[in-house]
Protein backbone atom coordinates (compact mmCIF):
# COMPACT_ATOMS: atom_id res chain seq x y z
CA UNK A 1 0.00 0.00 0.00
CA UNK A 2 2.69 2.49 0.90
CA UNK A 3 4.64 1.39 -2.14
CA UNK A 4 2.10 3.08 -4.41
CA UNK A 5 3.33 6.51 -3.41
CA UNK A 6 5.13 8.05 -6.34
CA UNK A 7 7.86 10.46 -5.43
CA UNK A 8 8.52 13.28 -7.83
CA UNK A 9 6.05 12.76 -10.60
CA UNK A 10 8.42 11.94 -13.36
CA UNK A 11 6.99 10.45 -16.54
CA UNK A 12 9.88 9.12 -18.61
CA UNK A 13 9.75 9.95 -22.28
CA UNK A 14 11.86 10.94 -25.20
CA UNK A 15 10.21 14.14 -26.39
CA UNK A 16 12.07 17.34 -27.13
CA UNK A 17 10.96 18.70 -23.74
CA UNK A 18 12.37 15.62 -21.99
CA UNK A 19 15.65 15.93 -23.81
CA UNK A 20 16.31 19.58 -22.95
CA UNK A 21 19.18 20.20 -20.55
CA UNK A 22 17.70 20.14 -17.04
CA UNK A 23 19.55 23.33 -16.10
CA UNK A 24 17.89 25.12 -18.98
CA UNK A 25 14.53 23.71 -18.01
CA UNK A 26 14.84 25.21 -14.54
CA UNK A 27 15.82 28.59 -15.98
CA UNK A 28 13.00 28.43 -18.54
CA UNK A 29 10.57 27.58 -15.80
CA UNK A 30 11.67 30.62 -13.84
CA UNK A 31 11.28 32.70 -17.02
CA UNK A 32 7.75 31.35 -17.36
CA UNK A 33 6.91 32.41 -13.80
CA UNK A 34 8.30 35.85 -14.60
CA UNK A 35 6.17 35.90 -17.75
CA UNK A 36 3.03 35.14 -15.77
CA UNK A 37 3.70 37.87 -13.26
CA UNK A 38 4.62 40.39 -15.92
CA UNK A 39 1.43 39.68 -17.85
CA UNK A 40 -0.85 42.56 -16.86
CA UNK A 41 -4.02 41.82 -18.81
CA UNK A 42 -6.07 38.95 -20.12
CA UNK A 43 -4.55 39.11 -23.58
CA UNK A 44 -0.97 38.67 -22.45
CA UNK A 45 -2.09 36.00 -19.98
CA UNK A 46 -3.79 34.17 -22.84
CA UNK A 47 -0.56 34.26 -24.84
CA UNK A 48 1.31 32.71 -21.90
CA UNK A 49 -1.42 30.07 -21.56
CA UNK A 50 -1.42 29.08 -25.21
CA UNK A 51 2.38 28.94 -25.13
CA UNK A 52 2.24 26.52 -22.22
CA UNK A 53 -0.33 24.33 -24.00
CA UNK A 54 1.95 24.11 -27.04
CA UNK A 55 4.83 22.96 -24.83
CA UNK A 56 2.55 20.38 -23.20
CA UNK A 57 1.67 19.03 -26.63
CA UNK A 58 5.36 18.84 -27.54
CA UNK A 59 6.12 16.90 -24.36
CA UNK A 60 3.55 14.14 -25.06
CA UNK A 61 2.31 14.44 -21.48
CA UNK A 62 -1.37 13.57 -21.28
CA UNK A 63 -3.67 16.53 -20.65
CA UNK A 64 -5.35 14.62 -17.87
CA UNK A 65 -2.21 15.17 -15.81
CA UNK A 66 -2.87 18.89 -15.91
CA UNK A 67 -5.99 18.36 -13.83
CA UNK A 68 -4.18 15.90 -11.61
CA UNK A 69 -1.54 18.49 -10.76
CA UNK A 70 -4.25 21.05 -9.96
CA UNK A 71 -6.28 18.89 -7.62
CA UNK A 72 -4.11 19.17 -4.48
CA UNK A 73 -3.96 22.97 -4.62
CA UNK A 74 -7.64 23.45 -5.40
CA UNK A 75 -8.36 24.85 -1.88
CA UNK A 76 -5.70 27.52 -2.36
CA UNK A 77 -7.15 28.48 -5.73
CA UNK A 78 -10.62 28.70 -4.23
CA UNK A 79 -9.37 30.76 -1.29
CA UNK A 80 -7.59 33.26 -3.56
CA UNK A 81 -10.61 33.48 -5.81
CA UNK A 82 -13.06 34.19 -2.96
CA UNK A 83 -10.75 36.59 -1.17
CA UNK A 84 -10.34 38.73 -4.26
CA UNK A 85 -14.00 38.49 -5.03
CA UNK A 86 -15.19 39.77 -1.66
CA UNK A 87 -12.54 42.24 -0.62
CA UNK A 88 -11.78 44.29 -3.70
CA UNK A 89 -13.77 47.46 -3.72
CA UNK A 90 -14.55 49.05 -7.07
CA UNK A 91 -15.60 52.60 -7.93
CA UNK A 92 -19.02 51.92 -9.40
CA UNK A 93 -22.08 50.26 -7.93
CA UNK A 94 -21.67 46.72 -6.61
CA UNK A 95 -22.76 44.08 -9.13
CA UNK A 96 -24.19 41.89 -6.43
CA UNK A 97 -25.10 43.05 -2.98
CA UNK A 98 -26.00 40.51 -0.35
CA UNK A 99 -26.20 41.83 3.17
CA UNK A 100 -22.74 43.07 4.10
CA UNK A 101 -21.13 41.35 1.09
CA UNK A 102 -20.62 43.56 -1.92
CA UNK A 103 -19.17 42.21 -5.12
CA UNK A 104 -17.85 44.73 -7.58
CA UNK A 105 -16.97 44.37 -11.24
CA UNK A 106 -13.28 44.96 -10.42
CA UNK A 107 -13.43 42.18 -7.86
CA UNK A 108 -14.81 39.80 -10.45
CA UNK A 109 -12.11 40.51 -13.03
CA UNK A 110 -9.26 40.51 -10.53
CA UNK A 111 -10.38 37.27 -8.99
CA UNK A 112 -10.69 35.63 -12.41
CA UNK A 113 -7.30 37.00 -13.40
CA UNK A 114 -5.59 35.77 -10.24
CA UNK A 115 -7.16 32.34 -10.52
CA UNK A 116 -6.02 31.90 -14.11
CA UNK A 117 -2.55 33.07 -13.15
CA UNK A 118 -2.22 30.55 -10.31
CA UNK A 119 -3.58 27.74 -12.48
CA UNK A 120 -1.04 28.50 -15.22
CA UNK A 121 1.71 28.76 -12.62
CA UNK A 122 1.01 25.30 -11.23
CA UNK A 123 0.64 23.75 -14.69
CA UNK A 124 3.97 25.26 -15.75
CA UNK A 125 5.80 24.13 -12.64
CA UNK A 126 4.46 20.59 -12.79
CA UNK A 127 5.58 20.23 -16.39
CA UNK A 128 9.14 20.56 -15.08
CA UNK A 129 8.76 17.67 -12.65
CA UNK A 130 6.76 15.61 -15.17
CA UNK A 131 9.53 15.72 -17.76
CA UNK A 132 12.69 15.81 -15.61
CA UNK A 133 13.94 12.95 -13.44
CA UNK A 134 14.69 13.83 -9.80
CA UNK A 135 18.35 12.99 -10.40
CA UNK A 136 18.58 15.32 -13.36
CA UNK A 137 16.95 18.01 -11.24
CA UNK A 138 19.46 17.46 -8.43
CA UNK A 139 22.36 17.62 -10.87
CA UNK A 140 20.95 20.78 -12.40
CA UNK A 141 20.53 22.42 -9.01
CA UNK A 142 24.10 21.52 -8.07
CA UNK A 143 25.37 22.96 -11.33
CA UNK A 144 23.26 26.14 -11.18
CA UNK A 145 24.21 26.87 -7.58
CA UNK A 146 27.90 26.09 -8.02
CA UNK A 147 28.89 29.79 -8.10
CA UNK A 148 27.72 29.91 -4.47
CA UNK A 149 30.66 27.66 -3.54
CA UNK A 150 32.76 30.82 -3.56
CA UNK A 151 30.93 32.05 -0.48
CA UNK A 152 31.31 28.58 1.12
CA UNK A 153 27.73 27.54 0.54
CA UNK A 154 27.74 23.69 0.69
CA UNK A 155 26.30 23.11 -2.77
CA UNK A 156 27.77 19.66 -3.36
CA UNK A 157 26.80 18.46 0.11
CA UNK A 158 23.20 19.54 -0.40
CA UNK A 159 23.02 17.79 -3.77
CA UNK A 160 24.53 14.63 -2.23
CA UNK A 161 21.97 14.78 0.57
CA UNK A 162 19.16 15.04 -1.95
CA UNK A 163 20.51 12.09 -3.94
CA UNK A 164 20.81 9.92 -0.85
CA UNK A 165 17.33 10.93 0.30
CA UNK A 166 15.90 9.98 -3.09
CA UNK A 167 17.83 6.72 -3.01
CA UNK A 168 16.52 5.75 0.43
CA UNK A 169 12.86 6.73 0.06
CA UNK A 170 11.83 3.38 -1.49
CA UNK A 171 14.00 1.46 1.01
CA UNK A 172 12.48 3.21 4.00
CA UNK A 173 8.94 2.90 2.65
CA UNK A 174 9.46 -0.84 2.34
CA UNK A 175 10.82 -0.90 5.87
CA UNK A 176 7.86 1.09 7.20
CA UNK A 177 5.54 -1.48 5.63
CA UNK A 178 7.40 -4.28 7.37
CA UNK A 179 7.45 -2.55 10.75
CA UNK A 180 3.72 -1.79 10.50
CA UNK A 181 3.01 -5.42 9.70
CA UNK A 182 5.21 -6.52 12.61
CA UNK A 183 3.52 -4.16 15.06
CA UNK A 184 0.08 -5.22 13.84
CA UNK A 185 1.10 -8.82 14.40
CA UNK A 186 1.77 -7.88 18.02
CA UNK A 187 -1.65 -6.35 18.36
CA UNK A 188 -0.96 -2.71 17.57
CA UNK A 189 -4.07 -0.92 16.36
CA UNK A 190 -3.00 1.45 13.60
CA UNK A 191 -6.15 2.01 11.60
CA UNK A 192 -8.95 3.00 13.94
CA UNK A 193 -9.67 5.95 16.17
CA UNK A 194 -9.51 9.67 15.63
CA UNK A 195 -6.66 11.70 14.29
CA UNK A 196 -4.84 12.02 17.63
CA UNK A 197 -5.26 8.34 18.42
CA UNK A 198 -3.93 7.40 15.01
CA UNK A 199 -0.96 9.72 15.38
CA UNK A 200 -0.17 8.20 18.78
CA UNK A 201 -0.45 4.72 17.33
CA UNK A 202 2.29 5.61 14.85
CA UNK A 203 4.89 6.07 17.60
CA UNK A 204 5.78 2.35 17.77
CA UNK A 205 6.26 2.45 14.00
CA UNK A 206 8.35 5.61 13.90
CA UNK A 207 10.79 4.70 16.67
CA UNK A 208 12.11 1.50 15.06
CA UNK A 209 12.16 3.31 11.71
CA UNK A 210 14.35 6.08 13.14
CA UNK A 211 16.69 3.66 14.85
CA UNK A 212 17.12 1.73 11.63
CA UNK A 213 17.61 4.91 9.59
CA UNK A 214 20.48 5.91 11.88
CA UNK A 215 22.05 2.47 11.54
CA UNK A 216 21.74 2.68 7.78
CA UNK A 217 23.32 6.14 7.77
CA UNK A 218 26.25 4.83 9.76
CA UNK A 219 26.84 1.90 7.43
CA UNK A 220 26.39 4.01 4.32
CA UNK A 221 28.97 6.51 5.56
CA UNK A 222 31.40 3.64 6.09
CA UNK A 223 30.75 2.27 2.60
CA UNK A 224 31.21 5.74 1.11
CA UNK A 225 34.50 6.12 2.93
CA UNK A 226 35.66 2.78 1.54
CA UNK A 227 34.95 4.15 -1.89
CA UNK A 228 37.22 7.14 -1.31
CA UNK A 229 34.48 9.75 -0.85
CA UNK A 230 36.00 13.05 0.23
CA UNK A 231 33.49 15.73 -0.63
CA UNK A 232 32.91 17.63 -3.84
CA UNK A 233 36.45 18.79 -4.45
CA UNK A 234 38.06 17.30 -7.55
CA UNK A 235 35.05 15.11 -8.19
CA UNK A 236 34.10 14.16 -11.74
CA UNK A 237 30.76 12.85 -12.98
CA UNK A 238 29.97 9.92 -15.25
CA UNK A 239 27.20 11.91 -16.91
CA UNK A 240 28.11 15.45 -17.83
CA UNK A 241 25.24 17.87 -18.23
CA UNK A 242 25.38 18.92 -21.86
CA UNK A 243 23.70 21.94 -23.33
CA UNK A 244 23.23 22.03 -27.09
CA UNK A 245 21.74 24.15 -29.82
CA UNK A 246 18.21 23.07 -28.89
CA UNK A 247 18.57 24.50 -25.39
CA UNK A 248 19.61 27.89 -26.71
CA UNK A 249 16.81 27.83 -29.28
CA UNK A 250 14.35 27.13 -26.44
CA UNK A 251 15.81 30.03 -24.49
CA UNK A 252 15.41 32.37 -27.47
CA UNK A 253 11.80 31.24 -28.02
CA UNK A 254 11.02 31.92 -24.35
CA UNK A 255 12.67 35.32 -24.55
CA UNK A 256 10.65 36.20 -27.66
CA UNK A 257 7.36 35.14 -26.04
CA UNK A 258 8.29 37.08 -22.89
CA UNK A 259 8.96 40.14 -25.04
CA UNK A 260 5.60 39.59 -26.74
CA UNK A 261 3.85 39.47 -23.39
CA UNK A 262 5.53 42.72 -22.33
CA UNK A 263 4.56 44.39 -25.61
CA UNK A 264 0.95 43.30 -25.19
CA UNK A 265 1.04 44.79 -21.71
CA UNK A 266 2.14 48.13 -23.07
CA UNK A 267 0.03 48.34 -26.23
CA UNK A 268 -3.30 46.86 -25.22
CA UNK A 269 -4.04 49.68 -22.72
CA UNK A 270 -2.91 52.24 -25.33
CA UNK A 271 -5.26 50.78 -27.91
CA UNK A 272 -7.91 51.08 -25.26
CA UNK A 273 -9.10 47.50 -25.39
Amino acid sequence: MLKDITIGQFFPGNSIVHRLDSRFKIILDILYVVMLFVAGNFYSLAVAGVFMLIIYMLSNISFRLIFKSLRPIFPIILFTCLLNLFFIKGEGEPVISFGFINIYMEGLTTSLFMTIRIVFLIIGMSLLTYTTSPIALTDAIESLFSPLKKIHFPVHELAMMMTIALRFIPTLIEETDKIMAAQKARGANLDTGGLIKKAKALVPVLIPLFVSAFKRANELALAMECRCYRGGEGRTRIKQLKSGVKDYIALVIFAVVLAGVILLNIYIPILGL
Binding site: P134, I135, E219, L220, A223, T236, I238
Partner: peptide
Protein backbone atom coordinates in the same frame (compact mmCIF):
# COMPACT_ATOMS: atom_id res chain seq x y z
CA UNK B 1 29.64 -5.11 3.59
CA UNK B 2 26.77 -7.27 4.71
CA UNK B 3 23.72 -5.21 3.79
CA UNK B 4 23.65 -4.32 0.09
CA UNK B 5 20.97 -1.68 0.69
CA UNK B 6 23.26 0.35 2.89
CA UNK B 7 26.13 0.46 0.43
CA UNK B 8 24.35 1.79 -2.61
CA UNK B 9 24.54 5.57 -2.83
CA UNK B 10 22.99 6.53 -6.16
CA UNK B 11 19.49 6.07 -7.55
CA UNK B 12 20.66 4.40 -10.76
CA UNK B 13 22.83 1.28 -10.95
CA UNK B 14 25.50 2.64 -13.27
CA UNK B 15 25.79 5.90 -11.34
CA UNK B 16 26.37 3.93 -8.17
CA UNK B 17 29.08 1.83 -9.76
CA UNK B 18 30.66 5.08 -10.94
CA UNK B 19 30.62 6.59 -7.44
CA UNK B 20 34.15 5.58 -6.40
CA UNK B 21 35.61 6.65 -9.74
CA UNK B 22 33.85 10.00 -9.51
CA UNK B 23 35.39 10.48 -6.08
CA UNK B 24 38.82 9.69 -7.48
CA UNK B 25 38.38 12.28 -10.21
CA UNK B 26 38.67 9.90 -13.15
CA UNK B 27 37.84 11.30 -16.61
CA UNK B 28 34.15 10.76 -17.60
Amino acid sequence: FQNPDNQIVATIVEEDVAFALENLGVEP
